[in-house]
Amino acid sequence: MNAPPFPAIIPGYYRYSYRLILMNRILSKTQLSDDVFMMKVEAPLIARERLPGQFIILQINNDFGERIPLTIADADAEQGWIAIIFQTVGRTTHLLAEKNVGDTIESVLGPLGHPTHIERVGTVVCVGGGIGVAPLHPIVKGMKAAGNRVIVIMGARTKSLLIMEEQMRALADELIICTDDGSCGRKALVTEPLKEICGREPKPACVVAIGPPIMMKFCAEATRPFGVRTLVSLNTIMIDGTGMCGGCRVTVGGETKFVCVDGPEFDGHKVDFDNMMKRLKAYRRQEEHAHEQCHLEQAARQKGAAVA
């Protein structure tokens, strides 16, 4: 769909004006696993400014849609696109997955958050769980480019849920894959190889862990006894993403921090994961209802399409 023409006076037309600059057009769409998708989205301004570790907030419908944060998995400043990888877990991600190449996303805001602090420190262990491998990718890329030796540990429940194995293999000096059921790589949780690596001499200089909160919590617990600095990237509920609402707040070292502006990365040894996990569940009931509704609507639409 093309941007509407530039009308002189139409009340409420401001909704469209940003499209003149930010088309947010979907350039490509790939299904990475059953419910994980990757999209390249035209967003030249964000692509120009973004650094590893930063995220965007997107919204599908400016009147009634919700705003959800997604990490920028990759970007090309010259070609003017960013890549996002998402799992269909809620209404917005479902609607997003239904979009196709050439469609536009109504609102995309970014790049938000502090970029990852990337420097040459020696050996870095990057741990990615499930969809967390996506946000980890630009960090691995950056760490490698800065001259570090990078060990990547990837974990998933089962083989079919592993994403970006190729890309990681191409970058990592050492790649360890773990699945809960042993269908690929080691039958173990990511914390197992993580502990082993922390026990090596010399110790790794730093660990970056991104994945489900429970995984990050246990990664932080695994490295704590070794005293290895451990960064985690938090994905809390957000609205504005600019520090205006405090909905994304977490407790870090006894202090309240806003993930969107103070993070998203924090010292994993200081994060109160239990509180964060409880806060993530604040709207669980409503979200489950919406998710269910989403599948029903989708089924109805598919049925409708089949009939037509």
Partner: peptide, 23 residues
């Protein structure tokens, strides 16, 4: 909304989803 539309009628451009300091 009427106030914003009046600005646009004057030729002011409004860019939403644009955060200065980040974008």
């Amino acid at each position: 909304e009427a106030e914003i539309s009046a600005l646009q009628a004057m030729g002011v451009e409004v860019r939403t989803n644009f955060v200065i300091g980040r974008t």
